[in-house]
């Protein structure tokens, strides 16, 4: 029997109002023990108020070689940013 525990990715919410952020991984046989291990490893110094664990094998990632086709097309669409719009000096808050 293979006694090695599978890998889980750990996400911590540092405090209320913030998103969960990836912090690292733990090994555990199931979700409940993965949560306990994540608590012991990643929140010893009050780093969090909420945890997610996800089996690493279940993460679907974008292909780094497709970085150009996925992300570069967004580069020439400056009109999505408010800084592209020059306003008359009299308009203060917009």
């Amino acid at each position: 029997m293979n006694a090695a525990w599978p890998l889980w990715e750990v996400f911590v919410r540092a405090r209320r109002g913030l998103s969960h952020t990836h912090v690292g991984s733990v090994h555990a046989a199931d979700g409940e023990t993965a949560l306990q291990a994540a608590r012991d490893l990643f929140t010893r110094r009050q780093e969090g108020v909420s945890l997610w664990v996800v089996p690493s094998a279940d993460i679907v990632a974008s292909d780094p070689s497709a970085e150009a086709e996925l992300f570069e097309p967004a580069a020439d669409k400056a009109y999505r940013f408010p800084t592209s719009y020059v306003l008359p000096a009299d308009v203060d808050h917009m």
Partner: peptide, 15 residues
């Protein structure tokens, strides 16, 4: 520790 790690895996599979 091997029997302990095995037990956790076996329990997870049963669950």
């Amino acid at each position: 520790g091997e029997w302990v790690r095995e037990a956790a895996v076996a329990y997870a599979e049963k669950q």
